[in-house]
Design a protein around this nucleic acid. Structure first.
Lengths: 219, 219
DNA sequence: TAGATTGTTAATCGATTAACAATC
DNA sequence: TAGATTGTTAATCGATTAACAATC
C-alpha cells in the first residue's frame, strides 16, 4: 500500500461507499467487476474510481478489472477495519441503543467492549448482549480493556467534559452524536454526526426540485 | 435571493452547519458576527464563509459584519425551512423512534404529520405524541395530509417497494436510513444516511493518527 | 494474438484562498 | 472622517475527467 502524498478527504469520504458496494457484490456472488460496471452502479465516473483506488495501490488487472473479494479486503485494510479496533459506547439513550443495535460491529471489524450510562434505571439492564455499566466504572474498564474509540451519545452539555475525561484515560477516537460539535484535538480522531443536517439538505433539494418544476410549468 | 448559477453541492453541504452555529450564537445572545470571528469558531476560512453566503446574496454590511438573527433566517429560507414542509415517518423501529425523538421538527420548520409501521404490536402505541398508524392506511393519509417528505427507516428489502409506492401517492422527497441506497430518481429529492460510514471514516482517521505517532516515535 | 481494461499522465474544470476596492 | 469588514475579482490550488499507452 503506497502512501506518498496525503490522500484527500474527498477520496477518504468515498471509501466507505465503495466498501458497501463491494460487500453487496460479494454477497451477490459477483467475482470480478470493472471500473466501468461499478461506475454505472454507483453513479460516478470510472475515471474517479480508478483514480481513487490508485491513491493506495494498483488493485486491478488490465483486461480483467478488479477481483471483488480482494478489492473489498484492500479497502478494509485502508480503512483500518483489520486493526480490531475496540470501542466503548457512552450513553444508552435512544441514539446509543439504535447505534448499538444497527451497527454490525464485528462484521465491520470492530469490537464493542462495553456500554456505559449514568442513569441508575439503565445500569444493569441488557443491550445487544451487553450489561449496561455504571459510567463511574469507565476509568477502570478502559485501563483493563484498552479500547481506542468512544461512541458518544451523551447530552450536549456533558459532552465536552466526558470527552476530556476519556482522553485522559487513553481514548483517542470519538464518534460524536451530540448536537454540539467536538472540534479537532491534536492526535485525537474525531467524527461528528448530525442527523438533522441530512434533513435540512433534503429540504434544500426538495425546494430546488419544486422551483424547477414551477419554472417548467410557467413556460 | 439571487440564483444565477447553480450553487455547488460543497456549498449546500455546509449550509446546515452555518445554520447550527448561528442558532447557537443567537441562543447565546450574540447580535452580530464578522466572517473572521465565525471562521475561527468553525475552523474554516473567512473567505469561504463570505463566498458561500454570496452565492445567495449580500447578507452582511461593510464595517459591521453579519446580524446573527437575520443571517440565520436567510439561511433558513435558502434551506427551505420556511416552507412548512410536512413529513411522514415510515418505520417505527429503533432508528425511526430515535429520529422522531431527537429531531426537533418544529424548531427546524418541519411538521411531522404521522408515523407508520406494519407491525401489529407497534400500531396503536404512542411515539412523540403520535399514535403509530397501520401502514395500510398510508395512501389515504397522504391523500388527506399531503406531506412532501418521507423518512424511511424500513428493512432494506422493503425499501424500494415502499419508496415507489409512496412516490405514486405523491411523496417527492426521501430521507433514507436503510442500508440499501435509494438512487436518484427524476424530480425526487433523495438523501441517504449511513451511520456506519461515519464509524469507518473515524477508523481511517484513527489509523492515520496512529501511523504518524509511530513515525514520530521511530525518529 | 486480439480484446479489454487498467494505471497514469495530461487537460479541464471547479472550489478555495488571497487581495482589495467599495462602503457602511 | 477613520476603521472595519464586506462583496467581489483575480490567483491558486486541488479534484475530476479524458485520453491513451501499458499490459494482462
Amino acid at each position: 500500500m503506497k502512501m506518498e502524498k496525503k490522500v484527500s478527504v474527498s477520496v477518504i469520504n468515498r471509501l466507505p461507499r465503495y466498501y458497501r458496494y463491494l460487500t453487496d457484490l460479494l454477497a451477490a456472488g459477483v467475482e470480478r467487476i470493472s471500473s466501468k460496471e461499478l461506475s454505472e452502479k454507483m453513479q460516478v465516473t470510472a475515471s474517479q474510481i480508478r483514480q481513487d483506488l490508485n491513491c493506495f495501490g494498483g488493485f486491478g488487472q488490465q483486461g480483467y478489472g478488479y477481483n471483488v473479494k480482494s478489492l473489498r479486503s484492500e479497502i478494509a485494510k485502508i480503512l483500518g477495519l483489520d486493526q480490531g479496533y475496540t470501542a466503548v459506547l457512552v450513553g444508552a439513550g435512544n441514539m446509543g441503543r439504535t447505534f448499538a443495535t444497527n451497527t454490525k460491529f464485528e462484521s465491520r471489524g470492530f469490537r464493542l467492549a462495553g456500554i456505559f450510562d449514568s442513569d441508575p434505571k439503565k445500569i444493569g439492564t441488557e443491550l445487544v448482549g451487553h450489561t449496561i455499566r455504571d459510567y463511574k466504572e469507565i476509568a477502570a474498564f478502559i485501563r483493563d480493556e484498552k479500547p481506542e474509540m468512544a461512541i458518544l451519545t451523551v447530552p450536549k452539555d456533558a459532552m465536552h467534559a466526558v470527552a476530556e475525561e476519556l482522553i485522559s484515560y487513553g481514548i483517542r477516537a470519538f464518534l460524536n452524536f451530540s448536537y454540539t460539535e467536538l472540534s479537532d484535538i491534536e492526535n485525537i480522531a474525531v467524527e461528528n454526526v448530525h442527523l438533522s443536517d441530512s434533513l435540512m439538505r433534503l429540504s434544500y433539494k426538495l425546494l430546488e426540485h419544486d422551483r424547477s418544476r414551477k419554472a417548467k410549468e410557467e413556460e
